[in-house]
Design a protein around this nucleic acid. Structure first.
Lengths: 103, 103
DNA sequence: TTCAATAGTCCCATATTTCCGAACTACCGA
DNA sequence: TCGGTAGTTCGGAAATATGGGACTATTGAA
């Protein structure tokens, strides 16, 4: 049984969030998750020419940075951006970053 | 003769900026540079227990990401945060990040 | 001019991290 | 129970970061 690690709101660090978003693939994933209300990893996540194991790793990084919340839903995983937590912890940060993400 | 590489404003990328700021040491450096109007690397840069070569590398990363501008001033190097360029390229980003940097 | 000191870079060996193929687990439907 | 799909884990190769030591450039003093 896979158990996911989600840091508590107060354990989310700025350096962690920045490191997680410093990768173009992960930036795209977050963007994709914000347009789709609830996404599964592999298929809905942007660049589909990326190996599954690499993608799984990217999702783990995002999860451990506190950026997304993952729940098992049958055979797939539903990922949601923890907007409320990030905005509570670092107001304005997420919006400021994502505003420029598609360049 | 050491020649510094400074990307043009339009070549500054979001992922590059985020990656550069994702390191606590570099975040501290930028913060230090913004309080001091013009800083030399080694001495004024925050954690002084960091080896020179590592520090020099951090400054190179910040420089190549377009976050700072370095000029030779005699024996030392003057580093200035390229606030105008960053703000023109990604308005609000730098402020949003640095607002939470000291946590 | 020459010597010593200082700021910083460059080189290179080690340590850490990332990437990705392959094997594995979990769940669902036929 | 079997096969397919979604995703994780493992392990080795590739890329990157760290830091010690040698090197360069500049300045100031003897």
């Amino acid at each position: 049984m896979v158990q996911f690690v989600h840091p508590a709101r107060q354990d989310i660090t700025l350096a962690g969030v920045l490191a997680a978003l410093a990768d173009p693939v992960r930036l795209q994933i977050i963007q994709g998750l914000l347009t789709e209300p609830a996404c599964m990893s592999c298929t809905a996540a942007s660049p589909c020419d990326i190996p599954k194991s690499t993608l799984s790793n990217h999702f783990r990084v995002l999860r451990e940075a506190g950026l997304i919340h993952t729940t098992k839903k049958g055979v797939e995983h539903r990922n949601v951006v923890r907007e409320a937590d990030i905005n509570a912890r670092f107001p304005g940060l997420l919006k400021a970053i994502l505003k420029h993400a598609g360049e």
